[in-house]
């Protein structure tokens, strides 16, 4: 239960960090360490070199510009959760962040680290998928931006190449007049979700959904958009029958097998219920924001 041997570097600039990471095929980035340290202590990971990015000033801070909330790599979960500008620009983010682990872990763990770790049950990846955000990575061959739906490949696997550092994540602000909601089922607050669902809903003057986005975590090998459920709800007044049908369509997208936390059948029921509740909650909020 102690980390294995590794070398350690803590560069001050992104350029040096990129060179260090590329210098060794078994090097890994260390951000907040809230997923990597448990993996090291369990000896599930054995990097030969850790490149600690915490002292790189250009990887710090949150800014909002051109409809995007830009979260630099060393931004801790708790920083994003408590940022007043972010609460104004996109209240879905703070509401969801409160479900990520516990405060002492949110004080250290980073938002971008959670995206790179890409646990299929994690909340932050769901938010990125739901809002249609992106991750910007930089490696020896330059910088590129990867859309959320191309970034997450599988549980713990992303489109980031091994020698690339994720420098920032971009979360769109909440579209004007939209309502939002997120909730998840866990056995204890702060656990990874057995299933979680997020919704963003906009209504037209007649109360029909003219823009609706739904996503889920904990139900597949990566966070997923619930496209079939969105289609069934789009253009409707979100009545009981439509919500029920959408819940069922969402349940059909649950591919997670039975595990020690829940069976597939149970997760299907949880997702269906969460879809109904989150759409209703987001729609109610949309009505007050119109």
């Amino acid at each position: 239960m102690k980390p294995p041997l590794f070398r350690y570097q803590a560069p001050k600039t992104l350029k040096e960090a990129v060179i260090a990471l590329a210098s060794d095929p078994d090097a890994m980035v260390l951000a907040g360490g809230q997923s990597l340290l448990p993996a090291l202590n369990f000896r599930l990971a054995s990097p030969s070199l850790l490149v600690d990015i915490q002292h790189i000033d250009e990887l710090k801070g949150i800014s909002i510009a051109h409809g995007q909330i830009i979260v630099k790599a060393m931004t801790r979960h708790r920083e994003l959760e408590l940022d007043e500008r972010v609460r104004q620009a996109n209240p879905l983010i703070a509401e969801t962040m409160a479900h990520v682990a516990h405060i002492p872990i949110r004080n250290r763990g980073t938002v971008v680290g959670s995206l790179c770790h890409a646990d299929g049950a994690a909340e932050v990846p769901l938010v990125l998928i739901l809002l249609g955000g992106s991750v910007v990575v930089e490696g020896p061959s330059g910088r590129r931006e990867i859309e959320a739906d191309k970034f997450f490949r599988f549980h713990l696997s992303t489109a980031r190449r091994r020698d690339e550092i994720a420098v920032e994540a971009r979360f769109p602000v909440l579209p004007a007049g939209s309502g939002w909601a997120f909730d998840e089922l866990t056995r204890r607050h702060g656990d990874y979700a057995i299933a979680g669902v997020g919704a963003v809903v906009r209504l037209d003057a007649g109360g029909h959904a003219n823009d609706i986005r739904l996503a889920a975590c904990g139900v597949a090998s990566r966070p997923i958009r619930l496209l079939e459920a969105e289609k069934l709800l789009s253009g409707t007044a979100l009545g009981e029958a439509e919500l029920k049908a959408a819940g069922k369509a969402a349940a059909d997208l649950v591919s997670a097998p039975d595990d020690m936390h829940a069976t597939n059948a149970y997760r299907r029921r949880v997702v269906a219920a969460l879809v109904r509740r989150m759409v209703a909650k987001a729609a109610a909020r949309a009505r007050t924001r119109q």
Partner: peptide
């Protein structure tokens, strides 16, 4: 913060 999830180097 968790001292078991922090290297003294960090």
């Amino acid at each position: 913060a968790r001292s078991c999830l922090t290297l003294v180097a960090q």
